[in-house]
């Protein structure tokens, strides 16, 4: 199983993996929106040992993490958000979800100077809760009632990325270059286009609005 960054060509199978595993689904454009806005942040797990049936078989995706940066961070504090993460049942217990998350988190810090990463998880999803809390070190920030379309509540979780940043800075290749990365990203705020993505609306955003709406709004505000 390869772990590597998500490419546009992976999207049809990422979309399939998502709709096979999870009730929160998105159309292609929403995946493209992630892949073309923060191409460093989304990762896939690929079954590379699968024999090809035709010369055109795309890589078989067995897991993915779809991630983004918050477009309008409060107080300008850069932070990432996990839009969706899933691994096929047939490929669970290989630690793929954790590996995907760790790659994404490092990219959030390196590329965008993220201070923390947030996500939502169904309160009933014990396995995911365990991964986020026990394995990765997320903390429950609050409960968002009726966050999901079917009325289920969500834990809103957060993970501080500063320890990761310190660890990365301590790494040799960083020491070599000897530059502070602490304030990376502060400047981007003014460049970010306005997504109104309030947490509550996320599901609807993916399903109902997608990039089309985002893009149109951006265009009209720029015009």
């Amino acid at each position: 199983m390869d772990i590597r960054v998500l490419k546009p060509a992976d999207i049809p199978h990422v979309q399939s993996t998502n709709i096979t595993n999870l009730p929160e689904n998105y159309f292609m454009k929403y995946y493209l929106y992630h892949a073309l806005s923060w191409p460093q942040l989304s990762y896939v797990a690929v079954d590379v040992s699968r024999p090809k049936k035709t010369p055109y078989d795309p890589p078989k995706i067995v897991g993915y993490v779809l991630a983004k940066m918050e477009e309008e961070p409060v107080n300008g504090i850069q932070h990432g958000h996990i839009t969706s993460l899933s691994v096929m049942r047939t490929h669970r217990r290989l630690g793929l979800a954790e590996k995907l998350m760790r790659q994404s988190q490092r990219a959030m810090v390196e590329m965008f100077g993220a201070q923390y990463v947030s996500l939502h998880v169904r309160m009933s999803n014990i396995a995911a809760l365990r991964l986020y809390r026990d394995t990765l070190g997320f903390e429950v920030e609050k409960v968002e009632s009726k966050y999901y379309a079917d009325g289920e509540d969500a834990y809103s979780m957060k993970m501080n990325l500063n320890p990761l940043r310190e660890q990365l800075e301590a790494d040799e290749d960083y020491a070599d270059e000897g530059e502070e990365v602490g304030d990376v990203g502060k400047k981007e705020k003014k460049k970010e286009d306005g997504e109104q993505g309030k947490t509550k609306r996320k599901v609807k955003l993916g399903r109902g609005l997608g990039v089309g709406e985002l893009v149109e709004r951006n265009e009209s505000s720029k015009a």
Binding site: L32, S37, W38, P39, K191, D193, V211, V215, E219, K222
Partner: peptide, 15 residues
């Protein structure tokens, strides 16, 4: 939409 969106957003290799 990405022909214009990506230019504003910046990650052009992915585009």
């Amino acid at each position: 939409d990405f022909h214009s969106f990506s230019l504003r957003k910046g990650p052009i290799r992915a585009y």
